[in-house]
């Protein structure tokens, strides 16, 4: 568990981060969201002491991080950045093995671990082990970046705009891959992003920051449906609910078949995203749609279902 207590960072007279109190729950992904300059990256970098706080404290599993040597602290925390930061003079395997090497782990065990991790992030070890970072595409490089951060099996992962530099297609794929990885590994992840869709899509929780302060901390639903301030509402935008729908399949919203009422004439596949289902409702001028899976009706969905806030979280 990572706890921030009255954390602050001053640069000269101005506060980059001010009186920040926040607890990142174990095994969950918390998105640190906010406009640029809001202090989210500074906050992230204070957790592994790449930036030293000017006041307050960071506790990792109850222990004040100032009690640790910064290098030792960082070796126990995975770190992924937007520029990826692979070492161009080392091959993929050597890059992934960096932290285990620093920790003095057994070489042979590390080699096996590298293959396992490359598999995990969706890269064939035999193809990629000996490649140089210069031979990788942006998406492949960031997969290696994620594998490298996971190499020493740290309980905590810090990610600074990890998918920010990728083209939309690669970003989508990598977000999906990472969501699967996270579902299996259940790391405590803190991910900085300015991309609302990414935060809503990947975050179990979202911490929205503004001007160095925490604006709201909660589940994506909390922020969309129960914003605590005008800033939250404005930042997420009028279409925040739509954006959230876009990230969910319509099957999450459908009502079960009751067998009594007739099926609506217009049908959609259950894998269609909820936002498109809404568009179909509008286009067809109807109240309800049939949801089918492989041609079989499995439920129906209407305006009211899509408006409810409560699709269960994965």
């Amino acid at each position: 568990m990572i706890e921030l207590h009255h954390l602050e960072k001053r640069f000269g007279d101005s506060f980059a981060v001010q009186d920040l109190n926040l607890t990142f729950p174990d095994g969950e992904l918390t998105a640190l969201l906010g406009p640029s300059g809001c202090g989210k990256t500074t906050t992230l970098r204070m957790i592994n002491r790449l930036i030293e706080p000017s006041g307050g404290q960071v506790r990792l599993n109850g222990q004040d991080t100032r009690a640790l040597k910064p290098e030792a602290l960082r070796r126990g925390i995975g770190y992924v950045i937007q520029q990826v930061g692979l070492f161009p003079h080392l091959n993929v395997a050597q890059n992934v093995a960096t932290v285990p090497d620093l920790l003095g782990r057994d070489r042979r065990a590390t080699a096996a671990r590298v293959d396992e991790l490359l598999d995990l992030v969706g890269l064939d070890p035999d193809t990629f082990r000996h490649k140089r970072p210069g031979e990788l595409s942006g998406g492949q490089a960031q997969r290696v970046g994620v594998a490298r951060a996971l190499a020493a099996d740290p309980p905590v992962l810090l990610m600074d705009e990890p998918f920010g530099a990728l083209d939309p297609l690669a970003r989508d794929r990598l977000q999906d891959a990472f969501r699967d990885i996270q579902r299996r590994l259940r790391k405590t992840v803190v991910m900085v992003t300015h991309d609302i869709d990414e935060a809503l899509r990947l975050g179990d929780r979202v911490a929205l920051m503004n001007a160095g302060r925490l604006e709201q901390f909660g589940t994506p639903d909390d922020l969309i449906h129960r914003p605590v301030s005008d800033f939250v509402r404005q930042f997420l935008g009028e279409d925040a609910a739509l954006r959230q729908l876009a990230g969910q399949p319509v099957s999450r919203f459908m009502a079960a078949l009751d067998g009594a009422s007739p099926l609506p004439p217009v049908a959609v596949e259950d894998t269609l995203n909820a936002r498109s289902a809404l568009a179909v409702l509008l286009r067809e001028g109807t109240d309800r749609l049939t949801v089918t899976r492989g041609g079989q009706a499995v439920g129906t969905v209407g305006w009211a279902d899509l408006r409810t806030s409560g699709p269960e979280r994965p």
């Binding site: 790449l50 770190y79 520029q83 070492f87 620093l102």
Partner: peptide, 27 residues
């Protein structure tokens, strides 16, 4: 030397001398 590589090295817990000999100098 790419800033990202140096930042990553720091974030992974390399000491200043490890960063110099393992990352900056070879590059």
């Amino acid at each position: 030397v790419p800033a990202g590589a140096v930042d990553a090295a720091r974030g992974m817990g390399m000491t200043a001398s490890q960063r110099f000999w393992r990352v900056q100098l070879p590059l």
